[in-house]
Design a protein around this nucleic acid. Structure first.
Lengths: 339, 339
DNA sequence: TTGTATGCGTTATCAA
DNA sequence: TTGATAACGCATACAA
């Protein structure tokens, strides 16, 4: 039989209430009894029963806030599916999810949204924008006992409980690995990154370059453009790049904007160019099916959503803090045959 | 607030016990009250609380038997890790796992093991060997109310609750897709399958051939050997094949035995040959790291183990039957950079 | 500082 | 055929 609070109470000659006070550091216990109870619990190897905790926690009602910079960004479709799945599974624990979405990465708007949610929630999952205002606001939440998990984008420093998101470096490395295999190690490459200054995009490109240098010296990066997450802009930039670098044989799109890049490629009659991209959204699906994109590197968007909410629920209901600082997703390679 | 049995009892003017009898088809209820209760439950949209069920189930003790043909087969290392993870998470529900392993696929031994476990278990997870004796034994378990989930290998027909395992066809297709990308659609291919007559291996090869024919007509399969899951045998067979077909530029290993094949390739000084394999075991790790194997197609072994036990626990504790007939794993592409 | 009683939702065992 | 009650493990309000 498993070890319960009741058993510990009997063994240590105190009441169940006292054991609870000791094990959950609620105070009002004499040092002597505390020592005894702790020792007994240790010896018996006490592990709290999750079902019992969940049931008792049901008397409380927890609200979890979620803020995503997802509007107009297909990538988050699957993230939200993961969130909803985790939400369904948490209904039994008296959890309510308050989801808010914003368009673009406007720090002021994010802070405003945080203020708005604050009085209603016990926990926040945040697609964080890494600016001083946001970091400061997270600190404020922490002071007021509202823990924050950052989702998909992290802050460089601050009081978030943990981060769930991509391993951008690995994603770029994997893209380069695939490029190396497909191109036989020899290519003139154009890179389309989202924004030169966005950390994640920068890391992807760095990972890509790193593998080119170390494992595929025959692969040379000849130009780089920004897509700015804008189809029209990425199309124009791609046109410029391909016109001024006719030697390009392969393109790595390290952010959204693949559709625009591919349109430019097709219009120039350069469908021989090998395109490797990121993520597997609805619009990417079409490009992979048509053979325009040879491979795309994904970062488990569903799992990102599922895991983040799951960690939050576990924290609130079972009092179990995340045991990692960063939950990094795997780099998944998708090609025509295995999507 | 969520709908509970208590609430249904009040609304229908009966006791909680009666509601329980109706909802769980325990009998001894008059047709009239049954109708009322069912209607009320329906209207209110009753969803049983998992934590409550789990807690109540704890008074019972369930034993789950697992039989794996895993001895000497590295593939199952990760399957077992998944099982153990699910086991840990199920301790709270009074679940005990009885794991038994056998060497090779001997149906008689498997049936014997099933008989041995039968009196001790309430559920069986079986790495099934698809023979009449085993199918018959599964039927017998079914009659005696011991449900069976088949893991990794399925039976063609019979009374198993569901199957958790690979999608072999998709695995072969993915391998061909990667081969096509790497070889630029043109290759002379040797295939090393495990056993010609094993269903899974056959399906992998069929999927591979199918993609070659439809998408990469420039890829020709020039020879086929068996590895028989035996390093020495696969080495010799590979030597024979490579000697008699010097035109071979690529090899697809559709089962275990990759190490033997690679040894043959190296000894013949043919390291230019592109090798694509299956699974990511300890020994495969070395081959990928050395660049001998360019890509390997995996089928979520951890998830196979985790999911199968998870479904079993859910069935016993929460009375939730699997809602799929087959839980098929994804084909994951692993290359040097993303393993 | 400590103990007791009650409830979370479900199920099983009595008693009626 | 039904209802009442106790139990699963944990948390907490209240009493001592």
């Amino acid at each position: 039989m498993a070890v319960t609070i009741k058993k510990i109470a009997e063994k240590s000659g105190v009441s169940r209430g006292t054991v609870d006070r000791v094990l959950n550091n609620r105070g009002n216990v004499s040092p002597d009894t505390e020592a005894i109870v702790k020792k007994v619990a240790e010896e018996l190897g006490y592990k709290p029963n999750i079902a019992g905790k969940a049931l008792a926690a049901r008397k409380k009602r927890y609200n979890i806030g979620i803020i995503l910079c997802s509007e107009g960004n297909e990538f988050f479709d699957d993230v939200m599916k993961g969130i909803h799945r985790a939400e369904e599974e948490s209904l039994d624990y008296g959890i309510t999810v308050l989801m808010r979405t914003i368009k673009g990465y406007d720090a002021r708007q994010q802070v405003q949204m945080m203020d708005e949610l604050k009085p209603q929630i016990h926990f926040l999952i945040l697609n964080a924008i890494d600016t001083p205002e946001v970091i400061h606001k997270i600190e404020e939440f922490y002071q007021d006992n509202i823990e924050v998990i950052t989702l998909n984008t992290d802050i460089a420093s601050g009081k978030r409980l943990c981060h769930v998101g991509c391993n951008y470096t690995k994603s770029g490395e994997t893209a380069a690995g695939m490029m190396g295999l497909i191109m036989g190690g020899s290519a003139k490459i154009g890179i389309a990154s989202g924004f030169f200054h966005v950390l994640g995009h920068k890391q992807r490109v760095a990972g890509f370059q790193d593998v080119c240098r170390k494992r595929y010296p025959g692969m040379e990066i000849v130009d780089r453009i920004e897509t700015r997450d804008d189809p029209a802009y990425s199309y124009e930039q791609a046109l410029l790049m391909l016109r001024s670098h006719e030697e390009i044989t392969a393109v790595y799109v390290a952010a959204s904007g693949t559709a625009g890049v591919c349109r430019a490629i097709e219009e120039l009659g350069r469908s021989d160019i090998t395109v490797i991209a990121c993520d597997y959204t609805e619009s990417m699906k079409a490009l992979v099916n048509r053979g325009m994109v040879k491979a795309t590197i994904c970062q488990q968007p569903f799992t990102q959503g599922y895991k983040s909410l799951n960690l939050a629920v576990n924290y609130l209901v079972n009092g179990i803090a995340p045991y990692k600082d960063i939950y990094a997703m795997k780099s998944e390679i998708k090609i025509f045959e295995n999507v």
